[in-house]
């Protein structure tokens, strides 16, 4: 550096830098939470629907399937015919995991399309000190909270219906959460690739989520299926989550390495979806 003029401007420069660094420091650290805060405010506008579904669906499903269908199954096959427990005990953990998937398929599709395209609020966030990756984090955080509420309510109904024989049954709640997020992060990343929705999101509902629910050992064990359909279960996060939940809910017997595979598979999907979504958001918001 040479000359007094340069020193002065360097000094001003470092002052501005210091002020800007201080102003952005909190956002660099907590930005994801600020985004989550925003999403909670949005969710508040449909909080009634959220709670109604969270209470209504366990009531309907546990009653119709767990009690109605179960009495048919148990009467015909005996009280412990399905993997050694009553049909209700078998079914309940799967329905719990499915309810997490249902929240994921709602929150990680249209709201993402909305934020990037229809009401591009993500671009608004990105113009502040917030960074694209933090937008993705914030959405995942807020959906995780909604999912946790939904799954907890579901679990309480499982207890009320006497569907949880095992003492570690409550672990099924975090398992369902991870299942929902692992699937949801991938769906979010996929949605972030869409420039426009010309029916792709409806296709995901019809050709991914529906078959996944049917063929993930939800209503009947996977090995009942013909071998050429069983792969659907193996790649399905719902099957891995459901099986793991059953281990805790009623002590489904499976080798420990398989339980480990469930955990690792779900964790891997979650990580891949999360990182992929962050990359896509960065690319899309930096134009």
């Amino acid at each position: 550096m040479s000359g007094p003029t340069n020193d002065i401007s360097d000094d001003m420069r470092s002052q501005t830098l210091a002020a800007a660094v201080a102003a952005a420091a909190r956002t660099r650290r907590y930005g994801s939470w600020y985004v989550a805060e925003h999403r909670f405010r949005v969710m508040r506008s449909y909080a009634q629907t959220v709670l109604f579904t969270a209470v209504g669906s366990p009531l309907v499903y546990l009653y119709a399937m767990g009690v109605g269908l179960a009495s048919l199954v148990d009467n015909n096959l005996g009280d412990d015919a399905v993997t050694g427990v009553s049909y209700l005990a078998f079914l309940a953990p799967a329905l719990l995991a499915s309810s997490a998937i249902a929240v994921a398929s709602e929150e990680f599709t249209y709201p993402i399309m909305l934020g990037f395209k229809w009401n591009p609020t993500f671009f608004g966030m990105n113009a502040s000190s917030i960074q694209p990756g933090q937008i993705i984090n914030g959405i995942i955080i807020s959906v995780a909270v909604r999912m946790l509420v939904t799954c907890t309510i579901f679990y309480v109904f499982m207890l009320v219906f006497g569907a949880v024989p095992g003492r570690l049954g409550f672990v099924a709640v975090p398992v369902a959460l991870v299942t929902g997020l692992a699937f949801g992060a991938l769906v979010m990343a996929y949605t972030a690739t869409l420039k426009d929705d010309t029916g792709q999101l409806a296709m995901v509902q019809r050709f991914v989520i529906l078959p996944m629910t049917l063929f993930s050992g939800t209503f009947f064990p996977l090995d009942v299926l013909p071998p050429y359909l069983q792969w659907i279960g193996w790649i399905s996060p719902l099957w891995h989550g459901t099986e793991l939940s059953r281990v805790f809910a009623y002590g489904l017997s499976e080798p420990i390495w398989l339980s480990l595979v469930h955990v690792l598979y779900l964790a891997a999907l979650l990580a891949i979806g999360w990182v992929w979504a962050r990359r896509l958001a960065t690319r899309r918001l930096n134009t």
Partner: peptide, 12 residues
């Protein structure tokens, strides 16, 4: 290098 820092000083 300083995206968030600059944006903290801008209104857009």
């Amino acid at each position: 290098r300083y995206g968030p820092e600059i944006r903290s000083q801008l209104g857009v």
